[in-house]
């Protein structure tokens, strides 16, 4: 049995036939080739596969692709446009602050934190850590990740590390 799914992903409408058991994470990676969404644990613990559904971060390994019918999904690919060679300010801040080590957890963290953009400037370090608690980094590099998020929330310094939140 396959089912019809009509879903907007990164602003583009996709109509596909999928098996009901297909996870959103696999639909994004295997059916659409959007491999920026990483798959870690596949049971909702690691946060690597976090994407936004209707603007809210969720685990894409705990959502069935058929459940996104009629909804809007945003993945890490939507943060920047390879055509114009400009990264999202949050990505710039991660780059500038060495907040990626192996990079595996990064897409999930970006999609989690990007949804908080409006509140970021007022968030304490404790609140940032709480917001990050659903994303595991096995390089254990949380300190630089917090620095990057902090920098992204500050007013611009002309070096592409702020001015976004």
């Amino acid at each position: 049995m396959t089912m019809h799914v009509d879903v907007e992903i990164n602003g583009v409408r996709h109509r596909r036939e999928v098996e009901p058991r297909t996870l959103l994470s696999d639909f994004l990676r295997h059916d659409l080739g959007l491999t920026g969404t990483h798959v870690g644990c596949e049971h909702g613990v690691c946060g690597a596969c976090t994407v936004q559904v209707d603007g809210r971060p969720v685990r894409s390994c705990l959502v069935l692709a058929v459940q996104t019918h009629g909804r809007s999904v945003r993945t890490v690919e939507d943060l920047s446009d390879p055509e114009d060679d400009v990264m999202h300010p949050l990505q710039e801040a991660f780059h500038a602050n060495h907040a990626l080590q192996c990079g595996f957890c990064t897409p999930g963290i970006l999609m989690t934190i990007e949804a908080l953009s409006a509140d970021l400037a007022e968030m304490s370090d404790a609140a940032i850590l709480e917001a990050l608690s659903g994303n595991l980094c096995r390089c254990t590099g949380y300190r630089n990740i917090v620095c990057a998020i902090r920098a992204a929330g500050e007013p611009g310094d002309g070096e592409g590390t702020g001015s976004w939140a």
Partner: peptide
């Protein structure tokens, strides 16, 4: 019944649950 799926989908992924039909109530 499938609601938010945050407990059921891990059980499906592990194949601890193997229902014939999922009824999505969302």
């Amino acid at each position: 019944i499938l609601a938010g799926g945050q407990s059921l989908v891990p059980m499906l992924n592990f194949r601890l649950a193997r229902p014939a039909l999922l009824v999505d109530i969302t």
